[in-house]
Design a protein around this nucleic acid. Sequence first.
DNA 1: CTGAAAGCGCTTACAG
DNA 2: CTGAAAGCGCTTACAG
Lengths: 345, 345
Amino acid sequence: MDPAQDSSKVTIADVAREAGVSKGLVSFALNDRPGVSAETRARILQVAGTLGWTPSLRARSLSSKRSFALGFVIARDPEVLGSDPFFTSFIAGVETVLAPEGLALVLSVVPDASTELATYRTLVTDGRVDGVFLSDLRQDDVRIPYLSELGLPAVTLGRPDQLSPFPSVSIDDTNGIRESVRHLAALGHRRIAHVAGSPAMLHGNRRRAAFTAAMRDAGLGDGQVVETDFSISAGADATRRLLRQDQPPTAIVFANDPMAIAGIGVAQELGVSVPDDLSITGFDDIEFARYVYPALTTVGATPMVWGRAAATTLLGLIRTGSADDIELPAARLIIRGSAAAPTSH
Amino acid sequence: MDPAQDSSKVTIADVAREAGVSKGLVSFALNDRPGVSAETRARILQVAGTLGWTPSLRARSLSSKRSFALGFVIARDPEVLGSDPFFTSFIAGVETVLAPEGLALVLSVVPDASTELATYRTLVTDGRVDGVFLSDLRQDDVRIPYLSELGLPAVTLGRPDQLSPFPSVSIDDTNGIRESVRHLAALGHRRIAHVAGSPAMLHGNRRRAAFTAAMRDAGLGDGQVVETDFSISAGADATRRLLRQDQPPTAIVFANDPMAIAGIGVAQELGVSVPDDLSITGFDDIEFARYVYPALTTVGATPMVWGRAAATTLLGLIRTGSADDIELPAARLIIRGSAAAPTSH
DNA sequence: CTGAAAGCGCTTACAG
DNA sequence: CTGAAAGCGCTTACAG
């Protein structure tokens, strides 16, 4: 009765019979494989359309050993995760390429690194996904050899510091840090500090190195650096420590926006005026950055673009067996109100 | 050679042969179905363990017409989504119940409501999921009859305002609003405004109604209300509008934390001191709330707990055909620094 | 360019 | 309590 219900009952056998061909040929036509004449293919597709045939994903999965899904495993303390808007935007970007292809995204949020590996193994054992996204690259990341051994295709967000069989989608975030330091130096700052991310994470390391290099280039020494784990609370603590020194910095370059926003909060709490007494820059340009006061001068990231590029690359790898690395346009500094010339003193 | 590789090749037929029983019996043992003697079941499971048999999810899916996965479709402008930490924590909570059961979560982030419906349809047609989570309930929500007609089990986050065949997991968030108003009234505020969420969304409506009711109870009239779409930018705009009036409120109750944080930013920008000239309360207790200055007095939400409860309920519905509604402990006000007694004037 | 058949690895009535 | 067989709906060599 209900056409929607009926159509779900239509199988490849019905289409084959109606079109007067074998099931195999219908399959070939469906999968755009050579060996079907143009007119036969057209007729088959036409019949399929008329009958409202939707090939069974489950049957296709079983016989073709594919899952038509991609996976993303995020290993983070959920509390910290929540404040990082990167992932949802990234996933929205991924979605824009998966949806039209009829592919799905399987997401796992796990609390720690060992659960993370177990999750990848389950994903492979169950044949849940045809490939995965690898984010938050760490130094000498165990996930890379692990996935390689499991035979699971992957794309890394950022270029690993080790031999990797996987394509990468990366962005030059050092440029943003460099621009931040130059901007502050041009405003007249001499004592500039860096609240760095985790040294165990590649982007934390890279931004820190970029900071030091830019400081030297500007003739400002190495600059003081405080390491954190990228979390808001660690950012707040680091800021407090920096400002309580005898010679506090007049500017701080933060490795991400959440920490920078916490930094503004701490400064205000201590009665240190931003940007008059202290200039602050962030990294990521999360939406909050525009709405805190003063609005955060920060480096623009493009998580949706990353998502799209990573999904395209991973699909290419899965389908053709290889894919080129992609380098996205370098991150740029966005100047707003949280950085200004230091007041004389 | 590689045991991991070998084990993936082991099938139910191998186990049956080795255990000296039929494939059917192995299947029965695997699925804990009656009709297998305790010792036979034990022997089968033992053999399965020895051989390292992992039942093929794909084969099980095809023959049992289940997908062993749950779905979550989020319809939101990705920009706005990013600043809402609710989802990632919610998903982390869901994960804690899915992972031990060997179930996966399929996530879709779509830009608008029509894409949302199409996504649900695809999920059903492809047999991707056995049930879905329904969040951000709207007035007379079309998704409820739609999913019902598709025959897809669901759990709603919050109680719908319409007839619904689905169980709900809800929390009394009106209590948090009520506590906020009482807190402000007790501090001596008389002109309290509410920056409400979208009137099209149930929780926006509910919080707004709770605000008005609490104001009346306190003998403070209806209180001024400005409607928004829950977005940070709308929260900033609403605050600006409120503060520019001849008789601006001395306190504002925001329907969520992102808007409240933007509200603090706007106040600072306008030279209005928080909490001296203006008290502010939020809703959700996102991580940022503790780190802005002054720290945000807000209502605690528990997205991880929601996730866990919703997943448990949905699984129960799928497995037994019915599930009871769950009411989580009422949301409570968390007092921090953004609300204080109004300065006399 | 096309057909007939086996196979993917389970589950599920149906007999006994 | 147990076995043999059909079935889920595709894909994929293998023949022609």
